[in-house]
Measured scan of single mutants.
Amino acid sequence: VLKALERTRQLDIPDEKTMPVLMKLLEEAGGNWSYIKLDNYTALVDAIYSVED
């Protein structure tokens, strides 16, 4: 979780936006981090930006 938060902080995305999206992605992935961690957490960042749209 810390590495995911560090990555999104680099992009000026607050933890308050990151955590709900991260928890949803983890739930959808059955707790499997490998998809979320791919390409420096690209799936997480993309999911956060899609929620903002």
Rank of each mutant, 00 (worst) to 15 (best):
N40L: 06
D15Q: 02
V51W: 14
T18N: 01
P14C: 06
S50W: 09
T8D: 01
M19Y: 10
D12Y: 10
A4N: 03
V45K: 03
Y41T: 01
T8V: 05
I36S: 00
E27G: 09
K17P: 01
A4C: 09
K24F: 07
Q10N: 08
A4Y: 05
P14S: 08
W33I: 04
V51R: 11
P20C: 10
V1T: 08
I48D: 01
T8I: 07
D46E: 14
D46K: 15
K3D: 15
A29F: 15
I48F: 04
L11H: 06
I36Q: 01
Y49N: 11
A4R: 02
D46P: 01
T8S: 05
D46G: 08
I13E: 02
N40K: 06
K24N: 07
R9N: 04
G30T: 05
N40I: 05
M23Y: 09
R7M: 07
E6F: 09
G30M: 09
I48S: 01
L38R: 14
L25W: 04
D46H: 14
D39W: 08
V45W: 04
Y41N: 00
A29P: 02
L38E: 13
M19G: 02
L2A: 15
D12M: 14
D46F: 10
R9S: 04
D53F: 14
A43N: 09
D15C: 06
Y41I: 04
V21W: 05
D53M: 14
Y41W: 12
T18Q: 02
V45A: 02
M23K: 10
A29N: 14
E16I: 09
L44S: 01
E52C: 11
A47M: 09
P20R: 12
G30C: 11
A43C: 07
Y35W: 14
I48E: 00
S34K: 12
A47E: 06
Q10L: 12
D15I: 04
Y49E: 07
L22S: 00
E52S: 13
N32K: 07
E52T: 13
M19F: 09
K17S: 08
A29W: 15
V51K: 13
Y49W: 11
P20E: 11
A43H: 09
S50Y: 10
E6N: 08
K24H: 08
Y49I: 10
L25Q: 01
L38K: 15
V45N: 00
E16N: 10
N32A: 08
E27A: 13
A47L: 07
L25M: 14
Q10K: 10
